[in-house]
Amino acid sequence: MKFAIALFSAAHAPSSRRALLFAQAALAGGHEIVRLFFYQDGVYNASASVVTPQDEQDLPKQWRAFVAEHQLDGVVCIAAALRRGVLNEEEAKRYQREAVAVSAPWELSGLGQLHDAVQDADRLICFGGA
């Protein structure tokens, strides 16, 4: 089955961990993930600026490794990311901000990528919504 996964909660939320576990299980079960789309506070999961206490799981780091290892299409909503200060190098330059929090394998892009994934996937699975 082709899954699209949307994540709406911050990196410290239990639902963000569940999303990663689901994504890992989907691939392990032979399914395909057409795209990960991080929206709302979900954009924090792509931030390299998150510092996790040593005895806790570093979810942004785990997401990054997971996406890179499986060469997944990991999209962070650009509008949601700008609002929350989670910028890549290009956007930091554009808005003259010093902090760069996102880099490859993540890509900043628009909501069209969510709709595109919805069309492409058999199932859209959402985590961390209301």
Binding site: Y39, Q40, A80, G110, L111, A130
Partner: peptide
């Protein structure tokens, strides 16, 4: 921003 961001998904879908 949740209400606005939910609406943005809908408007983007409409635009497409």
């Amino acid at each position: 921003p949740s209400a606005r961001e939910a609406l943005d998904i809908v408007l983007a879908g409409g635009a497409f």
